[in-house]
């Protein structure tokens, strides 16, 4: 059992999250991709905690779980707000900040 397997799994999960963030347009899938990226970093922290024989990495991961929970509450409230204002969960609809060059 070597740490390399955990490093490989963590980087692959981070990349899957990044791909989901780039390629999909469903707001919920975007949100779950961000969650997956944060969780892969958590896995990396736990692995370092075991590699170094230090429990501090585990504590940082624990604090990060709390940050993830706060982020989830805000993101879901934001999705509900956006769905109420425009009746869709397509992220391409929300381009009001893009500005209109032709006008």
């Amino acid at each position: 059992m070597t740490p390399e397997l955990f490093f490989l799994l963590s980087s692959v999960l981070f990349s899957i999250g990044l791909v989901g963030l780039v390629a999909r347009r469903n707001l919920f899938v975007l949100y779950m991709s961000i969650e997956l990226m944060l969780s892969s970093v958590n896995l990396l922290l736990a692995t370092f905690s075991k590699v170094l024989g230090d429990a501090s990495g585990s504590v940082i991961a624990l604090l990060m779980i709390a940050v993830i929970a706060a982020e989830v509450a805000l993101f879901l409230a934001l999705i509900i707000h956006m769905y109420r204002s425009s009746r869709t969960i397509d992220s391409d609809t929300f381009d009001r900040l893009k500005g209109q060059i032709n006008d």
Binding site: P3, S11, S15, V19
Partner: peptide, 20 residues
């Protein structure tokens, strides 16, 4: 994204080779 994956994997796995 594949080069980023390889970069993360290589840079992290070069650090430590065994568990304490």
């Amino acid at each position: 994204v594949l080069p980023i994956t390889l970069l993360i994997y290589k840079s992290t796995s070069a650090l430590y080779a065994s568990f304490a």
